[in-house]
């Protein structure tokens, strides 16, 4: 049997369509590229995290948002927008809460983190679906790179670069972004570590991953009892650290995707050569 080059190079689908589908409904991108098992895993993982977060927070997370900022597209600047159907579901079911105020549930901040993480996780699955779409139909990939590197880079800034073998770059990114976040937290005296107080700035700094999560667990949600001179600068620095991490994740994704495609092309060229010799 011999393989024609055109069959071998035909991609599974359109990467843009795969990523859009995956963004809108968790797993839909994988269904489109013919990976139903991963699609089911993506759907269960993303919606599992979201529903657990909603349960822990009693559906009250978006009540953190100031009343004058509430509106139909208020969720567009939150990490939950990474899972569009989940965000729509949340807004339909819970929205900004009932008119009568209720006390915050005990684990509302953990619930808030889980909801936000579900959005980020769905973006990672959408990245994976888009990468699969670019590969030829008969290729079985080993591992989840570059999506796994993107996830690692979100969780610890620079870890994605490190896992790709770009250790110097990863170390510099870690020092720079975590340093920027710590400087911001010091300037704001920890007042930035609270989604209730700074809903949108928190969304930005959430993108810096575990360092934010750990510091918030240790020192977050403290009472502010006096004037903090550089609170605004601290908020901006923390938020900027997260936003710059997105730039770094794009670098991780582009590098990983290029490597994946190059590796696949090389393997296919070898397979064509081998099958040609066998035939």
């Amino acid at each position: 049997m011999s393989w024609s080059a055109s069959n071998v190079q035909e991609p599974r689908g359109d990467a843009t369509i795969a990523s859009w589908l995956g963004w809108i409904v968790p797993g839909a991108g994988h269904l489109y590229v013919g990976a139903p098992v991963v699609a089911a895993c993506a759907f269960l993982a993303v919606f599992g995290l979201l529903l657990l977060g909603i349960r822990l927070s009693d559906g009250m997370v978006f009540q953190f948002l100031d009343a004058d900022l509430r509106g139909p597209i208020a969720g567009a600047l939150t990490p939950e927008v990474g899972n569009v159907s989940g965000l729509v579901y949340y807004m339909k079911m819970h929205g900004f809460g009932a008119a009568l105020p209720r006390p915050w549930p005990e684990h509302i901040h953990l619930g808030s983190w889980l909801m936000a993480a579900s959005g980020m996780l769905n973006v990672v699955f959408a990245v994976h679906a888009a990468a699969l779409a670019r590969l030829p139909k008969n290729v079985v990939t080993k591992g989840f790179a570059p999506a796994s590197h993107v996830l690692a880079g979100w969780f610890v800034p620079g870890l994605g670069h490190f896992m790709q073998g770009r250790r110097a770059r990863g170390t510099i990114v870690f020092v720079m972004l975590v340093g920027l976040f710590l400087l911001g937290t010091w300037l704001a005296q920890g007042s930035n570590l609270d989604r209730e107080r700074h809903f949108y700035y928190w969304s930005g700094q959430f993108l810096a991953g575990a360092p934010v999560m750990i510091l918030e667990a240790l020192h977050g949600h403290a009472l502010v009892t006096g004037d903090i001179e550089y609170a605004d600068a601290g908020l901006v620095f923390g938020c900027l650290a997260g936003l710059l991490n997105i730039l770094c994740l794009l670098d991780v994704h582009a590098f990983g995707l290029r490597r994946l495609i190059d590796t696949t092309d090389t393997e296919h060229a070898a397979r064509i050569e081998t099958s040609g010799i066998t035939a």
Binding site: I172, L177, L180, L244, C248, D251
Partner: peptide, 11 residues
Amino acid sequence: VSAAIVLCGAF
């Protein structure tokens, strides 16, 4: 903050 922005942009 400029150093961080420029470095990430260059990378």
